[in-house]
Design a binder for these strands. Sequence first.
DNA 1: ACAAATCTTTAGCCCGGGCTAAACTAAAGC
DNA 2: GCTTTAGTTTAGCCCGGGCTAAAGATTTGT
Lengths: 139, 139
Amino acid sequence: MARKNAAKRSQPFDRTRHDHARETAEDYVEAIASLIEERGVCRGADLAKHFGVSHVTVTKTVLRLKREGLAEAAPYRPIDLTAKGRRMARAAKRRHEIVYAFLQALGVSDAVAKIDSEGIEHHVSEETLKAFQRYLEGK
Amino acid sequence: MARKNAAKRSQPFDRTRHDHARETAEDYVEAIASLIEERGVCRGADLAKHFGVSHVTVTKTVLRLKREGLAEAAPYRPIDLTAKGRRMARAAKRRHEIVYAFLQALGVSDAVAKIDSEGIEHHVSEETLKAFQRYLEGK
DNA sequence: ACAAATCTTTAGCCCGGGCTAAACTAAAGC
DNA sequence: GCTTTAGTTTAGCCCGGGCTAAAGATTTGT
């Protein structure tokens, strides 16, 4: 993903070039958490079905999550989240829910609100999220 | 970017796996159009500065845009958009402006609205955009 | 007109996230 | 217990979008 402007890059905390990887990680930990909640365990095949990608892609991505200390799994065993992964999952879920409820409150149909909220959730700052919440409360 | 669910993939028009590439293309044509408008021509170096990436990355991306019939440029010459590229740029700009105005109207600060709208614009459907416009008009 | 400065391209690398094919492990059925 | 079936991993490929280093083209200035 292209950085949006030069200013951002020259900041002290020069953002990683891999926003996209972060988004994927958020999607995965969120999905893993929800699958564990729903059916007790999360298997690679479940994730493959959930995201509509091949199981091989899932394996590779989960490998990265392990590398980054977000997930853990013994070979051929179900996937679990680390404390860090669970924290990220909770945060992502919260954002996701707020965005989804907000779009619905604005009059967007459920189906479209679902799709759009999945795309939007990774791009709303805390400030914007607060604005969404204000709207939700004030209506 | 991971596909969001299996359903979408099993649709007749199985969406391309490269949503991300489309977003980049939209950002680029939008930037190219705006640079041409501002200063008459758009050079690779301008884009590099605008996105905060190396000029080499710009060259590669512009090559892809040419391949896809969105941009055109003779070697060592300024970059121009094709009719198709201009159409995409107009559509992106419109979406961008609506999202930006909407966030501001919701009470988000200008700076944050600017950043968030850049991330969000690629993920709002026409239906959501309509809802944003309704809110803008009705307030 | 030529030298210097600026801009662009090419070559070659990295990683993320897709894929298929093939090998391997674990679970289920008999 | 052994075989089948289901799930997982490994190998090896593709493309997008980052990068640096080096080479080539254009513009500018004297």
